[in-house]
Design a protein around this nucleic acid. Structure first.
Length: 459
RNA sequence: GUGGGUGUAGCUCAGUUGGUCAGAGCGUCGGAUUGUGGUUCCGAAGGUCGUCGGUUCAAGCCCGAUCAUCCACCCCA
């Protein structure tokens, strides 16, 4: 045998069965997006490399898939780099990459969106609500729930600072997961609260180190979190000052007074708490989503400035998050458009797929759409079926004619494998009598009907 | 980038201390059943045991390297 064909690491083929389930997820999310007034947008798979670099932190830059320049990429490499390579000296990988590549695959949908907004600012009516469902690529090492090509389903509103957007997005989460029938926890935090905690600790400049350590609390425990803080140069005194964090428990209303007291000296934290109050008080009753305050939630520090969201499935064994999001006050600032606040969320369709599959939450009726298969008995009979096919299709039912005059057993197996509920049989006898034999594949029963009664028999 | 596990038929996997060890189930195809699938019975095709090298009289099994893949860390959807 020739060498087995394969696909790149971390990518996947999606079979028809899988696509039916994936499309169900996309359709569900898209319907809800549209119901909230978000409009579709697509951007290219490739962006200019300099649009993406520096937006996701050092780690993120490493994970961007760069596209080799077309033509003779090597020709563009500068002489000094060539000389260095020839001499066997090490060249900074970023420097070499920048000379070999000026395009890259998009890493997420938020940065391309920000680029779009800046580029088209004069054509856009603000506040601008858009959704975007497209694949993104990350040169990560694949593992459970992690792929190198995966789909994000983003909804963002930009050009408004109103907390009504945060409230709306929480409700949107609830709508989507209610439609999908999955129980989830929507975790919320506010970057301002985190800044306040850093201020209270006495080391406000350490906010990033502090927060990335806190973020691991539920995973590695308090002691290791404190170890990591010390390793990052956070003093024991500062660690002592954030001790109340570990004592927090219960619902938002239970935690609220403790937070109030602990963070009383930080105006910025107070603002964050007030904003969270607004959201908690306004979202109203939720169905499948449970809104929880999580002071350890830190994601996306590189650009989030206000609310931070993360959604975790309460069912299944996938521990990681299935959605993320937050408010960014100055995302477009990097591209030259200041004072444009936005807030957005992202659904991880691939992880949602994995959870729904594991928990058996996909609707059973997602199977193939063909309602009736016309068996093929030969040229004359098949041609006769064409008129009936048109009639059935015009009535809005999916129908197909087996393309070859194969043995009946093979044709029935085909219908069975595709989950087609009815087989219409028109052989020599039926043709003579002007009837059609309709077999119900599930019960095995079959009956002869007049051709004009075919539609009724397929109901 | 760091640390582990696994590579045997299309798929899921057995294979004992190296010595009939090239196997099973499922799937596919053919037949029983030339106008009837899903159930049943019979049969067939399909593998240089990931790759290269080493040890040995003898390697699917032991050793080394390499590639692939999965899991965990980092980070993230």
């Amino acid at each position: 045998m020739a060498t087995k064909p394969s696909i790149p690491k971390g990518t996947r083929d999606f079979s028809p069965e899988e696509m039916l389930r994936r499309k169900y997820i996309f359709r569900t999310i898209e319907d809800v997006f549209q119901r909230y007034g978000y409009l579709p947008l697509e951007t290219p798979a490739m962006e200019n490399l300099n649009t993406l670099t520096g937006k996701y932190g050092e780690e993120g830059d490493r994970l961007i898939f760069k596209v080799l320049n077309s033509g003779d990429a090597w020709k563009e490499v500068s002489d000094d780099v060539k000389a260095q390579l020839k001499a066997g000296e090490e060249v900074h990988p970023g420097k070499l990459a920048a000379q070999l590549s000026d395009k890259a695959l998009r890493y997420d949908l938020t940065v391309p969106f920000a680029r779009y907004v800046v580029q088209h600012q004069n054509e856009i009516t603000f506040p601008f609500k858009r959704y975007q469902i497209q694949p993104v690529w990350r040169a990560d090492r694949p593992q459970k729930g992690r792929y190198r090509e995966f789909y994000q389903c983003d909804a963002d509103v930009i050009g408004s600072t109103s907390l009504l957007s945060e409230i709306e997005l929480v409700q949107l989460f609830d709508d989507v997961f209610t439609a999908l029938g999955l129980q989830v926890a929507v975790k919320i935090n506010d970057r301002k609260v985190l800044s306040g905690i850093a201020a209270i600790s006495g080391q406000p400049e350490k906010v990033v180190d502090l927060v990335t350590a806190i973020d691991k609390l539920d995973k590695i425990g308090r002691e290791k979190v404190e170890d990591e803080m010390r390793a990052k140069g956070i003093t024991d005194e500062a660690i002592a000052r954030i001790a109340p964090l570990f004592a927090l428990s219960g619902t938002w209303t239970e935690q609220r007074p403790q937070l109030e007291q602990w963070l009383a000296a930080s105006p910025i934290a107070q603002q964050g708490l007030k904003d969270l109050d607004t959201v908690f008080n306004a979202v109203g009753a939720m169905r499948n989503a449970r809104l929880e305050f999580d002071p350890t939630l830190a994601r996306g520090l590189d650009y989030y400035t206000g609310a931070i969201f993360e959604v975790k499935a309460l069912e299944g064994t996938l521990g990681s998050s299935i959605c993320g999001g937050g408010r960014y006050d100055d995302l477009t600032g990097i591209f030259g458009l200041k004072h444009m606040s936005g807030v957005g969320i992202s659904f991880g369709a691939d992880r949602i797929y994995d959870v729904l599959l594991e928990t058996g939450k996909f609707p059973a009726a997602l199977g193939g759409s063909t309602r009736v298969l016309f068996a093929n008995f030969g040229e004359a009979e098949a041609l006769h079926c064409l008129a009936l096919l048109r009639q059935v299709r015009t009535a809005g039912l999916a129908a197909e004619l087996y393309p070859d005059a194969a043995k009946m057993g093979k044709q029935f197996s085909y219908a069975d494998a595709k989950g087609i509920p009815y087989v219409a049989i028109i052989g020599e006898n039926e043709l003579k009598q002007g009837i059609v034999t309709v077999k119900d594949m599930k019960s095995g029963e079959q009956k002869a009907v007049k051709q004009e009664d075919l539609l009724a028999a397929l109901a």
